[in-house]
């Protein structure tokens, strides 16, 4: 778990387009992007249809995850390389998901779809056909996932990082400004949380900032790296991005993503809430 093992460059992608052990997977918030064009040979996972249980609010089961990967021709030995639009939000969520189910070699394209397009690199519309494989997932690794009771008991004790925009943190908005305003029943943030928007970890072209800049960003905002850290946002995708920064790039242990995030916390009865900057 480090920048060297978790992140690949666009040059690396170009060199590995025909590498049979590599499977490229695009995961977007705007799921029409894949049809518009994708990296040659890449398949796509739909963040809702493929990665949400649908009946209960949870990750898909181990069996469903195995079925999804098997059907996609991914084996336990595959190098899975994820990328997506919107600064890799949903691709980092998928990355976290692969780690939850114990996949060994999963990586992210630094800069994601945006950098690929800004560099004018080729996209194709042809959807690849992949031969089904047999994938066996591990039991869920909940050491990288936070649940509501852990969050509540961590207030004022662990680092809690709210990666939403300042307007969502303060309670002015319930969702990012470009999305419908749906979220928790109330607005605000978890008391003692530090607001470090996900966007501060990214450069303009979608690549991550250097490890030195990233460490300084979190330290300056009051995150104590000696303590455990919980990241959250609205529905767990942007916080997967910041979880990736802390856990994978900065190689910090004890970093969890609270995927229930504000849509869960902001709907709980009787829990403390803070508003304002």
């Amino acid at each position: 778990m480090s920048r060297a093992t978790s992140l690949v460059s666009t040059d690396w992608v170009l060199e590995n387009l025909t590498n049979k052990s590599v499977v490229f997977v695009e995961v977007d918030e705007d799921t029409t992007l894949y049809e518009k064009g994708h990296i040659e040979g890449a398949i796509t996972f739909h963040w809702r249809e493929d990665l949400q249980d649908g009946l209960i609010r949870d990750l898909i089961s181990k069996e469903k995850f195995e079925a999804l990967l098997s059907k996609s021709g991914i084996t336990n030995d595959s190098t899975v390389v994820l990328y997506g639009g919107n600064n890799n939000w949903f691709a980092t969520y998928a990355f976290w998901y692969f780690k939850i189910y114990g996949h060994q070699d999963v990586r992210l394209i630094d800069g994601g779809r945006k950098l690929w397009e800004l560099k004018g690199l080729p996209l194709v519309t042809e959807v690849p056909t992949r031969t089904a494989a047999r994938y066996v997932a591990k039991e869920r690794d909940n050491s990288i996932r936070a649940f509501r009771d852990q969050v509540i008991s961590s207030i004022g004790i662990k680092n809690i990082v709210d990666v939403r925009s300042p307007a969502e943190f303060s309670g002015e908005l319930a969702a990012p400004a470009h999305l419908p305003q749906e979220g928790g029943q109330i607005k605000g943030h978890i008391p003692s949380a530090k607001n470090i928007p996900w966007s501060k970890a990214a450069n303009e072209d979608g690549t991550f900032r250097s490890n030195e800049e990233l460490a300084e960003l979190y330290k300056a905002a009051g995150v104590d790296f000696a303590k455990e850290t919980i990241a959250y946002c609205r529905i767990g995708e942007r916080s997967a991005f910041s979880w990736f920064v802390l856990h994978e790039l900065l190689d910090l242990q004890n970093v969890t993503n609270y995927d229930g995030s504000w849509t869960e916390y902001g709907s709980l009865v009787g829990v403390p809430v803070a508003v304002g900057a």
């Binding site: 992007l33 639009g85 925009s165 470009h178």
Partner: peptide, 15 residues
């Protein structure tokens, strides 16, 4: 940074 959107097929955007 406040927001980012991709352009649509007509090259348009809105905030």
């Amino acid at each position: 940074f406040t927001a980012e959107v991709p352009t649509n097929l007509e090259g348009q955007f809105r905030f």
